[in-house]
């Protein structure tokens, strides 16, 4: 493997061995994708910022657990999934209601021309939320995070084939939910 001085792994290994400033480069590289992941998972921007912050906090705190054997991205998403799981655990009562969640997305004060778009977004959000959490997660990872099936397989501790099948099923499930919503 060629050692690119600016590759994720090289940077993270530098962080691990005490050059903490290199985490800044990794932050610049991944704060948006991570924010996107958290935002799509939670639908709440301030919460997502807190979660991204937590992900980087944990990566700094547990920097010694990065072995360098796998991809940095895989490790990062492992950490992010743990952070999200903890968040979900803590907010189970608060955020479990779909109505609650959806009400935070739309802006009731939005202008009329934006209303349709907003409603459509709300519908997709709601549809995503109607999926089982693991289906939602695999859709977000595969459709938004620009991760290869191979990478997702490592993040979720499964095989590439299984990921492909799960994505396919999740996509069909989402389609079903959206079609039902349109018919209503």
């Amino acid at each position: 493997m060629p050692l690119n001085p600016l590759s994720d792994n090289t940077l993270m290994i530098a962080v691990r061995s005490g050059n903490l400033d290199q985490m800044g480069l990794l932050f610049e590289r991944y704060n948006r994708p991570l924010f996107g992941f958290c935002y799509r998972m939670t639908g709440h921007a301030p919460t997502s910022e807190d979660l991204v912050q937590s992900v980087f906090y944990r990566m700094l705190k547990y920097r010694h657990t990065f072995t360098g054997d796998g991809e940095f991205r895989t490790w990062m998403y492992h950490v992010a999934r743990n952070v999200l799981a903890d968040h979900h655990q803590q907010n189970r009562q608060r955020y479990d209601s779909v109505d609650d969640w959806a009400s935070r997305i739309g802006g009731g004060t939005e202008a009329d021309e934006a209303l349709h778009r907003t409603q459509e977004r709300e519908m997709v959000h709601e549809a995503l939320l109607k999926l089982k959490p693991d289906q939602r997660e695999i859709l977000i990872l595969s459709r938004f995070q620009e991760l290869k099936y191979e990478e997702i397989a490592r993040i979720l501790h499964t095989t590439e084939g299984a990921v492909k099948v799960k994505v396919h099923r999740a996509m069909n499930e989402l389609k079903k939910v959206l079609l039902e919503a349109h018919e209503l």
Partner: peptide
């Protein structure tokens, strides 16, 4: 799905 906007952090 793609139309779902993600705000800037």
């Amino acid at each position: 799905l793609g139309s779902l906007p993600v705000p800037e952090p």
